[in-house]
C-alpha cells in the first residue's frame, strides 16, 4: 500500500463523505472550539455528560478530509464511554500520532486507520484537532465539576 493509500483509507474517506454525529447538541454540558491557524481548520465539539458518561457528542466545523474524518471517528468511538475511558482513548490516539507506541487495536478499534497520517507530519495536526478540542472540553469540565 502506498503512503497515499495508507493516508486515505476507505474508512477515512467514508467518514469524510458521510460524517457521523455532525452538528451541535442543543443543551450541551459543555462545548469547546478548536482551530488550527496554520491551515484554517475549525471545529466545535459539544458533549452531553450523564452520570460520568458521554451520553451524546457532536462536532461541527470546516477542514480537510483528515480533520473531518478524525472528528467523525472520534465521536463514534467516545459515545457511551466513561470520562476515564475517553481520557485513556485520547492518550492512546496521541501516542499513535506521535508514534510513541504501536497502535493498540483493542483500544483504538477503527481509529487505527488513521495511523497512516504519521507518514505526513504536517497532517498530524489535522488529525489531532478534534482530539485536543475534546480534551480541552473535558479539562474545563473537570475544573467545574458542578456542571457535570
Amino acid at each position: 500500500m502506498s503512503a497515499l493509500d495508507a493516508l486515505y483509507r476507505e474508512i477515512i474517506l467514508d467518514h469524510y463523505k458521510s460524517p457521523r454525529n455532525r452538528g451541535r447538541i442543543d443543551d450541551p454540558t459543555i462545548a469547546t472550539q478548536g482551530n488550527n491557524p496554520l491551515c484554517g481548520d475549525e471545529i466545535e465539539v459539544s458533549l452531553l455528560i450523564d452520570q460520568g458518561r458521554v451520553a451524546d457528542v457532536r462536532f461541527q466545523g470546516v477542514g480537510c478530509s483528515i480533520s473531518q474524518a478524525s472528528a467523525s471517528m472520534m465521536t463514534d468511538s467516545v459515545k457511551g464511554k466513561s470520562i476515564a475511558e475517553v481520557l485513556g482513548l485520547i492518550q492512546a490516539f496521541k501516542d499513535m500520532m506521535s508514534a510513541a507506541a504501536e497502535p493498540d487495536p483493542d483500544t483504538l478499534g477503527e481509529l487505527e486507520a488513521l495511523a497512516g497520517v504519521r507518514q505526513y507530519p504536517v497532517r498530524v495536526k489535522c488529525a489531532s484537532l478534534a482530539w485536543t478540542t475534546l480534551l480541552e472540553a473535558l479539562d474545563l469540565l473537570a475544573r467545574a465539576p458542578s456542571n457535570a
Binding site: L4, L7, C39, G40, C64, S65, R123
Partner: peptide, 22 residues
C-alpha cells in the same frame, strides 16, 4: 469541495509541489 490540503497531499505524491492554505 476538496480541501486544498488534501489536493496538496495528492499532488505531492505525484512529485508536484504546490502551496495550499491562506
Amino acid at each position: 469541495d476538496v480541501h486544498p490540503h488534501d489536493v496538496g497531499t495528492v499532488l505531492d505524491s505525484e512529485g508536484i509541489a504546490i502551496r495550499a492554505g491562506h
